[in-house]
Amino acid sequence: MAVLAMRDALNQALREEMKRDESVFLLGEDIGLYDGSFKVTRGLMKEFGEKRVLDTPIAEEIIIGTAIGAAMSGLRPVAEMMTVNFIMVAMDQVVNAAAHIRYMFGGGTKVPLVIRTPGGGGHQLGAQHSHSHENWFAHVPGLKVVAPGTPADAKGMLKSAIRDDNPVMFIENEGTYAVKGEVPDGEHLVPLDKNEVKRAGDDITICAHSRMLIVAMDAASELEKEGISAEIVDMRALRPLDMAPVIESVKKTSRLITVEEGWRSYGVGSEIASRVYEEAFDYLDAPVARIGAAEVPAPYNKRLEKIAFPGKADVVVTAKALLGKN
């Protein structure tokens, strides 16, 4: 067990899978010679060569399209989209093609493809580089969507995603690449369809994924000082959405907060809340509270940006309000 930054845990997963399976190759913008915008692919072109680490033009549609065709023809591509905002240019390939090909061709082929892409804001990058869109993909049958929040899960889920026979949207976060944590060496696989309790508690349940998992864990520590015991459920598996640990937790705490970095409307929290109302309505003592980004295009100004994205204080205040302790 080593302590690794998130980006190095991802790098380790890629390296191990490329060594294990010749059919795994990487493609994307500046992932090779440049070592990747966020250095996740550092050193891999040097180690595996230009055929298996393919630098592409800045042309998102051809990146995803090439990956799909290669996947249908026996390879296991891992495509990097520099940020999730750029994938909009290639949405036809992701949704109309990758997600639907297997079904519309009657199961005659499969698309074992991983699309790695970071979302998230907080770096003063403005309205075209800062958003989170995992809910868009999680809406689509045929895609799997995961968004790990710890280095160990990042490694284990990326390895599982590469071995999966379906298109997997692997959502990273620009704000977590430097976050460190213990990562098991070698063969460490985390399933793509299992959410889990990351911190046990009794008074209130908080669901969060990706960078918001870290925010929620921080909030839980602060709440503990005030005598509030929060249970944190990591929603790393968004599609298929594993609700079991959430339902179980709500049955215990009777209160639920969802936290996501994207906009609340039609969001991840909306889906979680609906399912809790359907499956555990009688256990709730208060309406589900959803926390998300302010419904504006991300602003550049530092002060405005800070209030546009959710933080620890939002979670703490909301938790206390739900428990009537403000």
């Binding site: 190759f25 055929k51 393919l54 549609e61 051809i62 995803i64 399209g65 090439t66 990956a67 799909i68 065709g69 290669a70 996947a71 249908m72 023809s73 026996g74 390879l75 591509p77 036809d92 390939q93 109309n96 093609a97």
Partner: peptide, 17 residues
């Protein structure tokens, strides 16, 4: 126009293999 990039993927796989 959707299939052209996908066809390129099959061609890439041919070279790869």
């Amino acid at each position: 126009g959707q299939a052209l990039p996908i066809a390129c993927g099959s061609a890439y796989a041919i070279n790869y293999k």
